[in-house]
């Protein structure tokens, strides 16, 4: 996911680097303060110590985390919102049904009736809605380079929105422990350009 190739994955990577920078700095500052605290000689009266302490606790214990939280959420929540399967301007996004079972992926395209196993073909630069469900145990659909994961739970259908930047083949895998075959429960996502996708669809049908 550090080499993103899809909309959601770009956002998540961006969040990662941003948070790493911010929180990493805070961490270093806290460590440095601690080392100073260990070494310095206390040359204070009790009253001065109390005053200083209040600043430590209010500043570091309340103000600092509140600021960080608000900052992170202010960026994070809108980005999260954009990853959702919101209605798209100009028509329905392409729907693909994926049903997992121990230990394979059944993929079907309701519009054309194409059925595949362990392989998903999608067009590039187009939002795609994957309708995820499971026949047996809980699985989770994840293509690290394209976006976040979503669980596939028997009795429920979850919708995952993905959009790939450019054609290529991406690795996907089950991310929720599902038994002995879990480690080998993989699939491929093949991203075509628009023309290529039309061609693939013709051939597959």
């Amino acid at each position: 996911m550090l080499d993103p190739a899809g909309d959601s994955a770009h956002s998540a990577a961006w969040l990662w680097w941003g948070m790493l920078g911010l929180l990493g700095t805070i961490m270093l500052v806290v460590f440095i303060l601690w080392f100073i605290a260990l070494r310095r000689a206390p040359a204070q009266t009790e009253a001065a110590a109390g005053r200083a302490a209040r600043w430590w606790i209010i500043g570091g214990g309340l103000v600092l985390p509140m600021t960080v939280i608000v900052l992170i959420l202010a960026f994070g929540i809108p980005l999260g919102q954009r990853m959702l399967p919101l209605p798209v301007a100009g028509g329905e996004p392409l729907q693909i049904n994926v049903t997992a079972r121990q230990w394979q992926w059944q993929v079907s395209y309701p519009d054309t009736g194409i059925r595949l196993t362990d392989e998903v073909h999608i067009p590039a630069n187009t939002p795609v809605d994957l309708h995820l469900s499971s026949e047996d145990v809980v699985h989770s659909f994840w293509v690290p380079r394209l976006g976040g994961k979503l669980d596939m739970i028997p009795g429920h259908t979850n919708v995952l929105r993905l959009q790939a930047d450019e054609p290529g083949t991406y690795r996907g895998q089950c991310a929720e422990f599902c038994g002995t075959g879990h480690a080998h429960m993989r699939f491929r996502v093949v991203v075509h350009d628009q023309a290529g996708f039309r061609r693939w669809r013709q051939e597959a049908r």
């Binding site: 601690w34 605290a37 260990l38 302490a53 430590w56 606790i57 214990g61 309340l62 509140m66 939280i69």
Partner: peptide, 22 residues
């Protein structure tokens, strides 16, 4: 994320105690 606040309070209480002590 809110739970980070009480955690931070404790971290800084410990820091302040070390700061003021020998």
């Amino acid at each position: 994320m809110l739970v980070a606040i009480p955690t931070a309070i404790q971290i800084f209480v410990w820091l302040a105690t070390l700061w003021a002590g020998k």
